[in-house]
């Protein structure tokens, strides 16, 4: 069979796109039962039939912290009570933040059968991914609490700042997932590109290495936006108050991110089904 050459029809009426996209976001939120079920299913999927099940999420992190924590304590010649909580808090903050970006590659593609099968708001899958990552973070947090208890990390009023920190990251996750979801579904090369860049960023951002070990390093890392996302989660975990600059930067990124992503989401929301 040949594919007849036809000229594409002029695009649909553009009026009301924004309100339909808002409706998508709102009605998706209303279907909380669905995205909770889908998130739970995603968490269990990787561990089906295994003895420890989703406890592996915490176990694998624990093993990593134990080994890498010990080695780097020696390498950096820092006391373990300082370095291990620093490493653990940084790692869980990093994973939470970056998996919201990396998951863009699968947020829609992984649910292709559902998207093609049901007239369902796309935002359902965004909320699902955010919830899934919050659940993952909960598992990580168990490991961190154990580490913090053993090494007596201070718990104080600043610890409570973790909650607004998580809310800011999760809200940023909404636009990051939507943007990356649209781009990665349409251009399949992007996911590969992003995951390579993320590995680079992991070493560039002070997750493993304390930035105060090097003179004037802080003046450089503040230009790394990922650093600020890291700080609003890590500092509360360590019982410290984050620099207000980090709140400002992450909130500013949220505003810019939504401003960029929303029009794209509104425009390509109904087109996405053809890309899967």
């Amino acid at each position: 069979m040949t594919i007849p050459k036809v000229e594409a029809l002029p695009s649909v009426e553009t009026a009301g796109r924004a309100s339909r996209a808002l409706e998508d976001l709102a009605s998706g939120l209303m279907q909380w039962r669905l995205w909770i079920a889908l998130a739970g299913r995603d968490i269990q999927r990787g561990y089906r039939g295994s003895f420890f099940g989703h406890v592996w999420i915490a176990l694998s992190l624990g093993i990593f912290i134990l080994i890498v924590g010990n080695i780097y304590t020696l390498v950096f010649e820092i006391d373990a009570a300082t370095y291990v909580p620093f490493l653990c808090s940084g790692l869980i903050a990093w994973r939470f933040m970056t998996s919201l970006i990396l998951e863009g590659g699968s947020v829609f593609l992984g649910s292709g059968g559902f998207i093609k099968g049901f007239a369902i708001p796309l935002s359902v899958f965004l909320y699902k991914s955010i919830l899934k990552n919050v659940i993952m973070f909960g598992h990580y947090l168990v490991v961190y609490v154990i580490v913090a208890a053993i090494l007596s990390v201070p718990v104080n009023a600043s610890t409570l700042l973790l909650i607004p920190g998580l809310l800011i990251v999760a809200f940023n996750g909404l636009w990051m997932l939507a943007l990356m979801g649209l781009i990665c579904t349409r251009f399949r090369d992007v996911e590969q590109l992003v995951s390579s860049v993320m590995i680079l960023l992991f070493f560039v951002t002070p997750v493993l290495w304390p930035e105060n070990r090097v003179e004037q390093m802080r003046e450089i890392v503040i230009f790394n936006p990922f650093y600020h996302f890291l700080e609003i989660l890590r500092d509360p975990l360590l019982g410290q108050t984050p620099d207000p600059l980090s709140w400002l930067v992450t909130l500013g990124i949220a505003v810019v991110g939504v401003a960029v992503t929303f029009p794209l989401f509104a425009r390509f929301r109904t087109r996405l089904v053809f890309w899967i």
Binding site: R41, R48, G113
Partner: peptide, 20 residues
């Protein structure tokens, strides 16, 4: 197949599909 998860049980698929 469309809208089903082959990896989970018939009951789980009923539940999932019901939610959809």
């Amino acid at each position: 197949g469309l809208g089903f998860d082959p990896e989970v049980s018939g009951y789980d698929n009923i539940r999932l599909r019901g939610l959809f």
